[in-house]
Design a protein around this nucleic acid. Structure first.
Length: 931
RNA sequence: GCCUCCGUAGCUCAGGGGUAGAGCGCUCCCUUGGUAAGGGCGAGGUCAUGAGUUCAAAUCUCAUCGGAGGCUCCA
C-alpha cells in the first residue's frame, strides 16, 4: 500500500498539459481525416452547424461533445466515420452586431469563426476540419445560387404576390415558420401581414411526401410537429354563387356531409370578392369592419375576446346543393390564409359557426341527427354545435347516410356526398394544407444574393458565368425597408436594360444543403463531388436542437427531395452503381436518424419555504426547530424567521424573508420537519433556491466553457455534460456535480498510474472483474446506441469502483490487470479522448487508442454463476436461497417448498398454486407459492 | 381547448408484470506532507394519487392530479 501511495503522489492528473499535447498530435497525424474507403462501412455523423455568434457557449458543448463521443464509438466499432463542422454564417445578427460596432458584417463574422474554431478545437472532438464549410463564402454561396437557379428553371422557385409576414423591427419579410403567435420568433416583435411580391419555393408540392416518415428514425415529437405544421386535411370544395352578379365563391370544407345545413356564408375581410358583392346599403359598415380587421394584428385577432365579430354584406348566395338562399357575412374568424378564405357556415355542426350564429341571430339547421337519443336534436334547444356521429337529415337524397367520426372518404356520409358532388359537378374532393410555400426573399444585406436579373421587365436567371453573384462589401446596410442592395448601382445595374434582383436569400436555404458541401468543400465545378456523395450519403446520424423541428428540418427534407427530382443526384447515383451500392431511396431524405438534445438551463430549483423558531443572538436566529411549509402557510402571529431558503452552508441557512436575508443557525439538536420526506429529517435535506431559466447574457447566468476547460480540463467538462443530464432532456446547470465525473477521471488516472500490481491475483476475483467488465460493456454499448450517455458513464463509474476495490485487496494479478486496463481505457476513449490517449501511451500501447477496435461484448463472460432463488408467498418475496444458474424448475420448487418461509405460511396445508419464474440472463429465478 | 411526452432516493437518471437500482450528493468515523484532497461505514424510496386486470403491478388499463413541449378561430 505504501508503495502504491508513493507512486500516485509522483504524478497527478494534469488535464491541461495532456490535452493540448494530444490535440496537436491528432492534428499532425491527421487522425480525424475522413477519406472515402469502399472497403469499410461508412458512417456520416453530423451535428447542427453553429451560427458564428461570437463565443462558444455551454450549449454548443452540450450538443457537440456527446455527438462526438458517439461518432468516436462508431469509429472504434469499425465504421469509417465522417464528422464534419462548419458555420451557418449569413444572417441578421451579423448585421445588427456590425451596425452596433460600426464594422463590416464579414469582419465580425470571420473574427467569430476564427475564435469559435479554436474553442471547438479545445473540445477534443474528432471534427475533420479539412471539410469545413462556411456558408457566407463565395465558394459556398455560388452553389446556393446554383440550386436556386435549378429550382427556378424547374418551376420550384417562383415569384409571386402574396400576403406575407413583414417585420417592421427587422425591416424584412419572414417565412411563415419564423412567425410564432404573430411575432417574430427571434425578437418577439410583432409581425404584420402585407401584400408583397416575393420569391417562394414550392414546398407545398412536397406536402404529402413530407408527411411520410417511413424509413426515418426521427423523434416522434418532431414527426408530429412537422405533421401538424403541414396540416393536411381532407374534404371537398364547392362553389356558391352570389345571387347578384353570380360571382363564384369557392369554399373548402372537411364536412361536405353538412352542406345542407349551411345557413350563411362567411368571407375573410381580405377576400377579393368582399368589395364586389357588398350592397350599397351595407358598404359603409363593411368597409369600417374590413379596416378595423386590417388594423388588428394576427395576435389581436386570435386573442381578442373570443366573441365572433362580423358584418352582413347585404348580399346572398345560393347553396349549390339545395338552392337555398344564404346571407353572406364578412367575419374575421375566417382566415384568408387558410383554405379559400371563404366558408359555408353550418352552425348546427361547427362550434365557431354556432357561436357566430347565436351572436348574430342567424338560423341553425340540424342536418346530422345523432342516433339513440330520446329527444332528437332541435336547433332552438342547442347550446353548442353537435359534431358527433349521426344520420344525415334534411339533406334531400342524401338523407339516412351515416356520418361517422372518421375524416375524409373513410366517413360513409362524406364519401357519398363527395361522389354526388363530383357526379353533379357541384363540387369536388379536395385536400387542403396548412403549409404554405416557403418565402425565401429577405430585404436585408448579409445574405446570399438571389441570382435573378430583370431584363426590360422580364425575369430571368442570372447566367452561369455570373455565379457567384457576389455580395459587394461597400454597401450601406442600415435597414430602410428596402433591400440595401437597391442602393448599390454597381451591383444591381448589369446594363441599361438589365437589373439584378436585390433581395437576398433566407439563410435557411444555405443550411438546407450544407451536408452536401462537407463532402467536398473545395469542389468548384459542382456543388459536391459525386464520388464522395456516393460513399457518404445520406447522413446517418444527425443531432441538434428541437427548435428546428419545423424550420430547418422541414426545409432540408424538402430540399433533398427537390434536388432528387431535378436530377442533381444523377451522377451520384451512377457512381453508387459503379461501386455496387443501390441508389434507390438514397436521396429521398437527408438524414436517416435524428436525435435532439435538450437544453442546459441556468440555475436550479426552488428553495424550501421554512418556519424557523429559536433564540435570536444578534442578527442570527439560533433555531431549535425548522419546519418546511407551503409559501402561504405562515401561522398568524409567528415571530421567528420565515421565508424561502436562499442558500445553505453547513448548518447556516440564509432565509429570504420577503427580500430581506435572515441568517439562521440550525442548532445540532434542532428538530427539522420536512413533510415530503418521511422519517427523521435533517438539514441536509433542505432544498435551497436556485432559479431555473434560460442562460442569457442579460441574466448573467451564462456558463463559459473556456473557463471550465481551464479549471477542470476538457475531458472533465465533456464527461460532466454527458453524465449530469439526460442528453435528450437537458436540465439545470449545477457545477457542484462536476466533482463526480472529475473524481472518476482522477481515479482512473490513479489506477492506471499506480502501475502493475505486485500480488499474484485471485482467479475468482479476476473472473468476477472480467464479468463486471462485460456487463459494463453491454450497458455502455446500449447507452451510446440510445444517446443515453449518462447511463454509459454511470456504469463505467460503477466498474471503476469495483476494480479499485479489487486492486486495494491486491487480488488482481499483472496479466489480468493489463487486460482490464486495456479494455477500460478503450471504453473510456469516446468520452475522455485525451485522458484515454495519454494512459494508452503511458501503459505502452501503440498510438492511437482511437483507432483501436471497440470491445466485443461476451455474454458468456458476463453471465453470473450463482443466483438467488427467490421464494415468494402470494407474490411477496419472503426468502432467498443461493443456487446455481442452471437450476431446474422441479428442483427450485422443491427447495422453495422446503424453505422456512413456505413451511411457516403453509403450516401443514398444501399450496393452492405454484408459479415458477426461471431466471433469464442473470436475473434471479423465483417461485411464487399461493397459499 | 386539442395533441405528445414525462412524474422512481436530496439531485440527475436506469429499469419496465416476478427481491427497489446506479452515479453523484449527504451522515458519521478515519486520514491529512495527495489538500478547491484521500479512505471506510451508513442512512435515505407506499416508484404522483385512486381504482381495475393478475398467482404477482413501480411496470399493463382507466381516471385524477402535477410538470414539460407543441398546435390553436385550420372551416
Amino acid at each position: 500500500m505504501t508503495g502504491r501511495k508513493t507512486d500516485r503522489m509522483n504524478e497527478r492528473y494534469q488535464p491541461k498539459q495532456i490535452e493540448s499535447k494530444w490535440q496537436r498530435r491528432w492534428d499532425d497525424s491527421q487522425l480525424y481525416r475522413a477519406r472515402v474507403d469502399w472497403s469499410k462501412p461508412k458512417h456520416y455523423a453530423m451535428t447542427m452547424l453553429p451560427y458564428p455568434s461570437g463565443d462558444l457557449h455551454i450549449g454548443h458543448w452540450f450538443a457537440m461533445t456527446p455527438s462526438d463521443a458517439r461518432a468516436r464509438w462508431m469509429r472504434m466499432r469499425g465504421y469509417n466515420v465522417l464528422f464534419p463542422m462548419g458555420f451557418d454564417a449569413f444572417g441578421l445578427p451579423a448585421e445588427n452586431a456590425a451596425i452596433a460596432r460600426n464594422i463590416h458584417p464579414w469582419q465580425w463574422t470571420y473574427a467569430n469563426i476564427e475564435r469559435m474554431r479554436e474553442q471547438m478545437r479545445s473540445m477534443g472532438a474528432m471534427f475533420d476540419w479539412e471539410r469545413e464549410a462556411i456558408s457566407c463564402t463565395p465558394a459556398y454561396y455560388k452553389w446556393s445560387q446554383w440550386f436556386f437557379k435549378k429550382f427556378y428553371e424547374n418551376g420550384i422557385a417562383y415569384r409571386g404576390s402574396a400576403l406575407v409576414n413583414w417585420s417592421d423591427t427587422l425591416q424584412t419579410v419572414l417565412a411563415n415558420e419564423q412567425v410564432i403567435d404573430g411575432k417574430d420568433e427571434r425578437t418577439g416583435q410583432p409581425v404584420a401581414q402585407k401584400m408583397m411580391e416575393q420569391w417562394f419555393f414550392a414546398i407545398t408540392n412536397y406536402a404529402d411526401e413530407l408527411l411520410d416518415f417511413a424509413g426515418l428514425d426521427w423523434p416522434p415529437p418532431i414527426e408530429l410537429m412537422q405533421t401538424n405544421w403541414i396540416g393536411r386535411s381532407e374534404g371537398a370544395r364547392a362553389t356558391f354563387y352570389s345571387e347578384v352578379g353570380a360571382h363564384p365563391i369557392e369554399i373548402y370544407t372537411t364536412r361536405p356531409d353538412t352542406l345542407w345545413g349551411a345557413t350563411f356564408m362567411a368571407l375573410a375581410p381580405e377576400h377579393e370578392l368582399v368589395d364586389q358583392i357588398t350592397t350599397d346599403a351595407r358598404r359603409d359598415a363593411v368597409e369600417a369592419y374590413v379596416q378595423a380587421a386590417a388594423a388588428r394584428t394576427e395576435v389581436e385577432r386570435m386573442f381578442a375576446d373570443r366573441e365572433k365579430t362580423g358584418v352582413f354584406s347585404g348580399a346572398y348566395a345560393i347553396n349549390p346543393v339545395n338552392d337555398e338562399r344564404v346571407p353572406i357575412w364578412i367575419a374575421d374568424y375566417v382566415m384568408i390564409t387558410y383554405g379559400t378564405g371563404a366558408i359555408m357556415a353550418v352552425p348546427a355542426h361547427d362550434q365557431r359557426d354556432f357561436e357566430f350564429a347565436r351572436a348574430h341571430d342567424l338560423p341553425v339547421k340540424v342536418v346530422i341527427q345523432p342516433a339513440g337519443r330520446d329527444e332528437p336534436l332541435a336547433a332552438a334547444a342547442m347550446t353548442e354545435a353537435y359534431d358527433g356521429p349521426g344520420a344525415m337529415v334534411n339533406s334531400d337524397a342524401m338523407d339516412g347516410s351515416f356520418s361517422s367520426t372518421a375524416k375524409g372518404r373513410a366517413n360513409p356520409a362524406i364519401n357519398r356526398v363527395i361522389d354526388w358532388l363530383e357526379a353533379t359537378g357541384k363540387g369536388k374532393e379536395s385536400v387542403n394544407y396548412r403549409l404554405r410555400d416557403w418565402l425565401i426573399s429577405r430585404q436585408r444585406y448579409w445574405g446570399c444574393p438571389i441570382p435573378i436579373v430583370f431584363r426590360n421587365g422580364e425575369v430571368a436567371a442570372a447566367p452561369d458565368d455570373d455565379l457567384p453573384v457576389e455580395l459587394p462589401d461597400d454597401v450601406d446596410f442600415v435597414p430602410t425597408g428596402r433591400s440595401p442592395l437597391t442602393y448599390h448601382e454597381p451591383f444591381f445595374k448589369v446594363d441599361e436594360d438589365t437589373r439584378r434582383e436585390t433581395d437576398t436569400l433566407d439563410t435557411f436555404m444555405c443550411s438546407s444543403w450544407y451536408q452536401l458541401r462537407y463532402l467536398s468543400p473545395d469542389c468548384d465545378d459542382a456543388p459536391f463531388d459525386a464520388e464522395e456523395a456516393a460513399y457518404w450519403l445520406p447522413v446517418d446520424v444527425y443531432t441538434g436542437g428541437a427548435e428546428h423541428a419545423v424550420m430547418h428540418l422541414l426545409y432540408t427534407r424538402f430540399f433533398t427531395k427537390a434536388l432528387r427530382d431535378i436530377g442533381v443526384y444523377d451522377a451520384t447515383a451512377a457512381a453508387m452503381r459503379r461501386h455496387g451500392r443501390d441508389p434507390s431511396a438514397a436521396f429521398d431524405e437527408p438524414m436517416t436518424l435524428l436525435r435532439n438534445q435538450g437544453q442546459v438551463l441556468g440555475g436550479e430549483q426552488q428553495g424550501h419555504f421554512v418556519l424557523c423558531s429559536g433564540r435570536k443572538i444578534g442578527e442570527t436566529l439560533q433555531a431549535e426547530r425548522v419546519e418546511v411549509v407551503g409559501w402561504n402557510e405562515v401561522p398568524a402571529g409567528f415571530s421567528g424567521v420565515f421565508g424561502e431558503i436562499a442558500r445553505r452552508t453547513e448548518n447556516i441557512l440564509r432565509v429570504d424573508m420577503a427580500g430581506v436575508t435572515q441568517l439562521v443557525e440550525v442548532l445540532p439538536q434542532a428538530e427539522v420537519i420536512i413533510p415530503e420526506i418521511k422519517g427523521a429529517n435533517n438539514i441536509n435535506q433542505l432544498r435551497q433556491h436556485l432559479e431555473i431559466q434560460r442562460m442569457s447574457k442579460s441574466k448573467g447566468n451564462v456558463v463559459n466553457p473556456d473557463e471550465l476547460v481551464a479549471r477542470y480540463g476538457a475531458d472533465v467538462v465533456r464527461c460532466y455534460l454527458m453524465f449530469n443530464f439526460d442528453w435528450q432532456k437537458g436540465g439545470p446547470w449545477n457545477e457542484n456535480n462536476i466533482k463526480g465525473p472529475q473524481g472518476w477521471l482522477h481515479d482512473i488516472w490513479d489506477i492506471a498510474m499506480a502501475g502493475e500490481p505486485a500480488g499474484a491475483g485471485d482467479a475468482a476475483v479476476e473472473r468476477d472483474i472480467i464479468r463486471k467488465l462485460h456487463q459494463c460493456i453491454a450497458v455502455v454499448d446500449r447507452g451510446l446506441e440510445n444517446f443515453s450517455f449518462n447511463t454509459a458513464i454511470a456504469e463505467q463509474m460503477k466498474f471503476k469502483n469495483a476494480l479499485k476495490d479489487a486492486l486495494r485487496q491486491e487480488t488482481i494479478g499483472v496479466a489480468a490487470w493489463r487486460e482490464i486496463m486495456n479494455a477500460a481505457i478503450r471504453l473510456l476513449a469516446p468520452f475522455a479522448p485525451h485522458l484515454a490517449e495519454e494512459l494508452w501511451a503511458r501503459l505502452g500501447w501503440e498510438y492511437s487508442v482511437h483507432t483501436q477496435p471497440w470491445l466485443e461484448y461476451d455474454a458468456e463472460l458476463a453471465r453470473e454463476e450463482a443466483v438467488d432463488l427467490v421464494v415468494m408467498i402470494n407474490g411477496k418475496p419472503r426468502e432467498t436461497i443461493g443456487v446455481g444458474v442452471d437450476i431446474e424448475q422441479e428442483q427450485a420448487e422443491a427447495l422453495a417448498l422446503a424453505s422456512a418461509a413456505a413451511q411457516r405460511s403453509l403450516a401443514g396445508s398444501s399450496p393452492r398454486r405454484i408459479v415458477y419464474i426461471p431466471g433469464r440472463n442473470g436475473t434471479d429465478p423465483k417461485v411464487n407459492i399461493v397459499v
